[in-house]
Amino acid sequence: MSHPLLETRHVFKRYSSHTALDDVSLDIPQGRIFGLLGPNGAGKTSLIRIINQITAPDEGEVLLNGERLHPKHIADIGYLPEERGLYKKMQVGDQLIYLARLKGLSQREATERLKRWFIKFDIKDWWDKKVEDLSKGMAQKCQFIATIVHEPKLVILDEPFSGFDPINANLLKDEILELKQKGSTIIFSTHRMESVEELCDSIALINRSKVVLKGEKRDIKRQFMDNTFTLEYAGSLILPDEYEVISKTELEPNVYRTNVRIGPGGSVNALLTLVIHQVELKSFSENVPSFNDIFIRVVGETATQALLP
């Protein structure tokens, strides 16, 4: 029964001088936080603009809830662009009502919902202020409200944390998780890998207009695990050839941390047995690559490939 909330099928987008999207196919399941990653200029914004129907793909199609994108879907999508902006001379309340009405809410509904949000964020006294009198962080909060006030099925957040102080960033994080709980699907485009680790369920990595990596966060991590382990111990340790010591650092006198790769013929159990007999083991863990590592590895690889003739 369940088709993904958003599906892109073989999407191409070409501009006069370059190809922005090259055969991009993605499935974004309902109720998940989906990380759209990639270096600058990879094509993320082009894809987001297509999903928002700001531009149209040259080839391929985009389906929302199994239907081809249609102007009526505008009300189902909320979009927070990376470059934020509001009308500076307009009052906050009027402005948010206007934006909500453009998304199809009635004047009354928009006012009611916005008032509720203003109470929730404890910013009631901003209602009559002009946007130019707000600080950057305050304006960002207002803009986030504008993005979700029409309760969209799909929320697209482009670098949502930029410009937020840690307190407000946490507030925003909680809101994002709450949206997910209520069943919204969130596309989350960012460079900040620590927030990807924290929030995303699945990701797609776009590089040079192609999807180079996609899937569940767990699966991708597993894919990038290289069978290396970190040990901390006191004493001196000698291992047979199946276990390759990649690095060794002395943390305190006679206390070491080593990275060990288990080669063919070795196993975790065997390694541990060897270790326990020789040294006092303080900790043992498998090295799980961070998204930062994965990002650098994948993007770096293609970058070097591109340099080859």
Partner: peptide, 17 residues
């Protein structure tokens, strides 16, 4: 120009043509 330099344009054109 105001809408464009404000960057509000991107939000608006995601709602209207």
């Amino acid at each position: 120009i105001e809408e464009k330099s404000n960057r509000i344009i991107e939000v608006i054109v995601s709602s209207v043509r």
